[in-house]
Amino acid sequence: MRKFAFMLVLLMSPMLAAEDLYMVRSQLSFPEAMTVLQQAISDSGYQVSRVQRVDIGLTTFGYKTDKYRVVFFGKLAEIRELGDQQPDLLAYLPLKIAIFAENEETILLSSSFAHLRSFYSSPELLASFDRWETDIQSILDRVRMVQ
């Protein structure tokens, strides 16, 4: 009985750790970091589909920066195929990385797919999650390491 209760708790709240939110600080200025980010995305075989501004009205609300963007990217064939097989995942696609300035430095943010894994069982899809996680971490690391 106790074992069952323990398993139930595990199922109800799978562990999400710090490593599941990818967040890096780049010492590059915002425009430089944005350039490196887009190049890193492209070099990883993805295509940037849109850079969305999130800063409209921020400074008028008293914020110190208006440099806040979300970069969407993906692979056309992959998105088409997933849209056929698992249409609900389109809510999470294209992939995205948020990027914003903090003083003279830049912070970039994305996430793993740990929060989705327990809801999907297809080995192909789980392999896609693995690949996206590796690629996103590699893209973020590249921006972080450029001085």
Binding site: V54, L90, A98, I99, F100
Partner: peptide, 26 residues
Amino acid sequence: NFALLNDALAIDPRVGMFLPCRITLV
């Protein structure tokens, strides 16, 4: 909704992961 957006940014500046609000039709 810009007022909601600014409230959210005050709570946590990392909310870009939720932005912008989006609904997908398939």
